[in-house]
Computed example of a mutant assay.
Amino acid sequence: MTLAELGPVPLKELAGCLVAESGHPSRLVSRLVDLGYVTRSASADDGRAVILTLTEKGASLAAAAAEVRAPLLAAIAEGYGDRLAEATTLLRELRGELEGDSP
């Protein structure tokens, strides 16, 4: 999942979509803010939460990246489409077990 796909999202939710060490998502977001790709704002629902939103510059870069990625994703889907859902399920189960979320 990308910030472009998630839309405005709390940092905690974005961090849950990343494979990164604790604290790394905050540092990564700080760099993106410094570069003008992302803005931070306080959540209207929870004053402690930080909401991340792509700037116009960030959305433009995300769209360009998606365009570059599209042929690769199409090739993967063509070659492995029948097995992708099974592999995704297995990886999610593994991640849950590693994080202690599974019984």
Rank of each mutant, 00 (worst) to 15 (best):
S26C: 03
L90Q: 10
G79P: 01
A77Y: 00
L73M: 11
G81L: 00
I76K: 13
L14E: 12
D45R: 11
A70D: 06
V68H: 06
E97F: 15
R27E: 09
A66T: 06
E86N: 10
E21P: 06
C17F: 13
E93V: 14
G36D: 01
E97W: 08
A85S: 08
G7M: 08
D46M: 05
P103L: 09
G47L: 06
T53K: 10
A75Q: 11
R40M: 04
G7I: 05
A75S: 00
L3S: 07
R83I: 10
P25F: 01
L84T: 02
A44Y: 15
A4E: 13
D46R: 09
A70S: 11
A75F: 01
R92Y: 07
G58H: 04
A77K: 03
P25H: 04
A62V: 12
E97A: 15
R40D: 01
D101M: 08
L98G: 10
L11E: 07
P8H: 00
L61H: 05
G23T: 06
A59H: 01
A75W: 04
G100L: 04
C17K: 14
T88D: 08
L32W: 07
E56S: 15
L11W: 14
L32F: 08
P8V: 02
D82R: 14
T39D: 05
A64Q: 13
E86K: 08
Y37G: 09
S43E: 06
S43A: 01
V68I: 11
D82T: 03
E21C: 04
T55G: 05
P103R: 04
G16L: 03
G23K: 04
H24L: 15
Y80T: 14
G16P: 06
E86Y: 06
V50H: 05
S60F: 08
L52P: 08
V50T: 02
V68C: 12
Y80N: 11
A62E: 09
E93P: 12
T89Y: 10
L18H: 10
G23H: 09
E21T: 13
E99C: 11
L90H: 09
G96L: 02
A65Y: 14
G36N: 06
Y80M: 05
E67W: 01
P103H: 03
L90M: 12
L84V: 02
Y37D: 08
L61N: 11
L90I: 12
L14T: 03
S22P: 12
G96C: 03
A15N: 02
R83Y: 12
L52F: 02
I51M: 15
L72A: 14
A70I: 00
A85F: 10
L3A: 11
E86G: 07
L98V: 07
D101G: 13
L6W: 10
L72K: 13
V38W: 00
L14S: 13
E99Y: 15
S43D: 11
A64L: 07
P10I: 02
Y80K: 04
L98C: 15
L61Y: 05
G58E: 00
D34M: 00
R69D: 12
G36A: 09
E97R: 15
A59P: 03
P25K: 11
A65L: 08
L32T: 05
R92T: 08
